Amino acid sequence: DEVTIHLGDKTIRVDGLDKELLEILKELARRGADEEELRKEIERWER
């Protein structure tokens, strides 16, 4: 499953996201997290 996250004018595509992680990323994005913060969160989950 590829998920596309839209952040204002930026788009991040991620393969096979965990549903819980997806919810966390959506919440972070709502709070104004930037792409770098979201990537760090994704990397934390992948470990």
Rank of each mutant, 00 (worst) to 15 (best):
E43D: 13
D34W: 02
E41G: 01
L17V: 11
I12W: 00
E2A: 12
R30I: 07
I24R: 14
W45R: 08
K10Y: 07
E36W: 08
E43P: 01
L21A: 02
D18T: 12
T11H: 11
E41R: 05
T4V: 15
D18Q: 15
K10N: 13
E37K: 04
E27Q: 09
G32H: 02
L22N: 02
G16C: 07
D18F: 06
I42A: 02
E20M: 11
K19F: 08
L38I: 15
E36F: 07
E27H: 07
K40V: 08
I42M: 10
A29K: 06
R39P: 00
I42P: 00
R30F: 06
L22E: 03
G32N: 03
H6I: 13
I42G: 01
L7C: 02
L38K: 01
D9G: 10
L7Y: 05
H6K: 14
I12S: 02
E43I: 04
K10F: 12
D1L: 11
R47H: 15
I5S: 05
D34P: 11
T11G: 15
V3I: 14
I5V: 06
I24A: 06
A33I: 04
E2D: 10
G16W: 10
D34K: 14
I42N: 01
R39D: 02
H6M: 08
E23P: 01
V3D: 12
K10S: 12
I42H: 01
G32L: 01
D18Y: 06
H6D: 14
I5N: 04
E27K: 04
I24T: 07
K10G: 12
D15A: 15
L17C: 06
E37W: 06
E43V: 03
W45L: 08
E2R: 07
D9A: 09
T11N: 12
L25G: 00
I42Y: 04
I42T: 02
L38G: 00
E41F: 09
L38H: 00
I12Q: 02
V14T: 09
E23F: 04
E20P: 05
H6F: 01
T4G: 08
G8P: 08
L17M: 11
I42L: 08
L38A: 02
L21D: 00
E35A: 12
E37H: 06
A33W: 06
L25I: 07
A29G: 06
I12T: 03
D34R: 09
G16Y: 11
K40S: 11
L28D: 00
E46Q: 12
L25K: 00
R13D: 10
L7F: 12
H6L: 06
D18M: 08
D34I: 04
E2T: 12
H6T: 15
L25W: 00
D15G: 13
E37R: 11
T11Y: 01
I12V: 06
D15W: 00
D9K: 06
